[in-house]
Amino acid sequence: MGGVVRQVKDVRLGDHLCLAFAHEAEQREVASAFVTAGLERGERVLYFTDGPTGDRVRRWLEESGVDVAEAMATGRLGIRSAEDTYLAAGRFDPDAMIDALREEVDRSLAAGFAGFRVSGEMGWALRGMAGAERLEEYERRVTALFDEGVSAAICLYDTRVFPADRLSALIGSHPGRVQMNALVHEGPLRVIPSFDPAGSRVLRVAGAIDHDSATAWSAALRGAIGGNGLGGDLQIDMSELEFIDVAGLRALVRTAGELEDGRRLRVTRLAPRLNEIVRLVGWDQTTGLIIDAESFPS
């Protein structure tokens, strides 16, 4: 999937991005960071929920340090339902929705805000509402509004409920995607956290792990096992890894050994040549370390 990929801390006015998440924990982290950053920058923020109340979102924001009552009372923050926004006309009308967002942008600027940002949960599109089949059209067309550079949006899609082909089309209707902030983003190494559908943490590793990045790599692994409050296995997705030296592999083994009983470090999509090294050295027999069978060459 092409387009820009931006960490949530780097989202800027002019962005129209989507988040395809596999668990509410990832949605919560990205949405909370997006809303909080907008408030801190003096922007007006709206959040559209897929449900009748915004209690869940209020709780997220309060736990992130936002004074939700004050922000809503002063008009800096609004939390609205899909029925009052996307489906205000009793159906989904792309033209009406784009006009409504433009009014919100104009209102925000007229009130002296530095900009406008909005995030919306998109599950309502699967409930058979009239007009929902035009959602891809809407996502493509509304980009022009954000391209004006005074507003930003993150559209939230749950990968557990959207059919894969529809999800791919919707993601492709956005200029780019957003992801959680990197645990490591230095030199050639990037370690991006996410969550699997069970709520266990996943670390997606890209680039290279060598002498220069070994310390940061070890720190990321330690932080992940210490901060995975949801429990379960820690998954390391190495599909985008280009190189890892022996010291980097040793860090994996060491981390697996530090997990409490019952938890495992599961490495997926490791390159065949690296799988072979792990097996030759015997590290694949390490207690708590799982190298998924599908990663091995046939």
Score class of each variant (00 low, 15 high):
Met1Leu: 07
Gly3Glu: 04
Val11Ser: 03
Gly14Thr: 09
Glu24Tyr: 06
Ser32Phe: 04
Glu40Tyr: 00
Glu43Ile: 08
Gly51Tyr: 07
Val57Asn: 03
Leu61Asp: 07
Glu63Ser: 15
Thr74Asp: 15
Leu77Gly: 00
Arg80Ser: 05
Arg80Met: 11
Ser81Tyr: 09
Ser81Leu: 07
Ala82Arg: 11
Ile98Val: 10
Leu101Met: 12
Glu103Gln: 13
Trp124Arg: 05
Trp124Thr: 02
Ala125Pro: 01
Met129Ser: 05
Ala130Gly: 08
Gly131Asp: 03
Arg134Met: 04
Leu135Met: 14
Arg140Ala: 00
Val142Asp: 00
Val142Lys: 02
Thr143Tyr: 05
Phe146Trp: 11
Gly149Glu: 11
Ser151His: 10
Ala153Ile: 09
Arg160Gly: 02
Ile171Phe: 00
Leu183Ala: 10
His185Thr: 03
Gly187Cys: 10
Pro193Gln: 09
Gly199Glu: 08
Gly199Tyr: 12
Arg201Asn: 01
Val205Trp: 09
Ala206Asn: 07
Asp212Asn: 13
Ser213Thr: 15
Ala216Glu: 14
Arg222Gly: 05
Gly232Arg: 08
Asp233His: 14
Gln235Ala: 03
Arg250Cys: 05
Arg250Met: 09
Arg254Val: 13
Thr255Ile: 10
Gly257Thr: 07
Arg263Tyr: 05
Leu265Cys: 09
Arg279Tyr: 00
Asp284Lys: 05
Thr286Phe: 04
Gly288Ile: 06
Gly288Cys: 08
Ile291Phe: 13
Ile291Asp: 01
Ala293Asn: 04
Glu294Cys: 02
Ser295Ala: 15
Ser298Arg: 14
